[in-house]
């Protein structure tokens, strides 16, 4: 099947399944690669999309959570799911309000989402509902870390260690070693 046929087929499916609950744009680059960018209005529709991907024998390449603002300018998580099927990249993004911080797991549908969801849960404190193995992935059993690493620290970071080291470097002019 040609790429454009795959893209068209998928679009039809989405239209049939979600109606107008989504926006989808395709982008093609100079080297022939094409990426789809899809925004879902309802986060709960994600499971349906994941089902389509599974039908196409696709997989999850990555999940990118990030902090963003929604239409009402209130803080929320934007979660981008990067799928790959039949030579096409598709990024499906959903917004999850920070106050809720919860999303349905797609791991039961697509096994390749397993680690990504666990990692998201760990770093962004987005809890993943219905994950078969919701254990911590990277920072398990370590008390040097706080609950949700990426958020508080990214705000609290002040680069103190580097300043301290540099003061010593700048202060040690007497050595004269080049």
């Amino acid at each position: 099947m040609s790429k454009s046929a795959v893209m068209k087929g998928f679009e039809d499916k989405l239209l049939f399944g979600l109606g107008n609950g989504y926006t989808l744009t395709w982008e093609t680059y100079a080297d022939g690669a094409s990426s789809g960018w899809c925004k879902l209005n309802r986060a709960s529709d994600l499971v349906i999309v994941a089902g389509y991907i599974a039908e196409l024998k696709g997989r999850v390449m990555a999940i990118t959570p990030m902090i963003n603002e929604d239409k009402d300018m209130s803080k929320c998580f934007e979660i981008d799911y990067h799928f790959f099927f039949e030579g096409v990249d598709l990024t499906v993004s959903v917004l999850v309000p920070e106050s809720k911080g919860e999303i349905e797991s797609i791991t039961p549908i697509l096994k390749s989402a397993d680690w990504h969801e666990r990692e998201m849960q760990e770093f962004y404190n987005v809890s993943v509902k219905g994950h078969p193995n919701p254990k911590k992935l990277l920072l398990d059993g370590n008390n040097n870390f706080d609950e949700n690493t990426m958020i508080p620290l990214s705000e609290a970071m002040n680069g103190s260690s580097s300043t301290a080291l540099w003061e010593k470097v700048l202060g040690s002019k007497n050595g004269g070693r080049m």
Binding site: L165, K168, V169, G171, S172, K173, G175, G176, R177, M178
Partner: peptide, 9 residues
């Protein structure tokens, strides 16, 4: 000892 001296100035 030379850790912080080890620089090009």
């Amino acid at each position: 000892e030379d850790k912080f001296n080890y620089a090009e100035r």
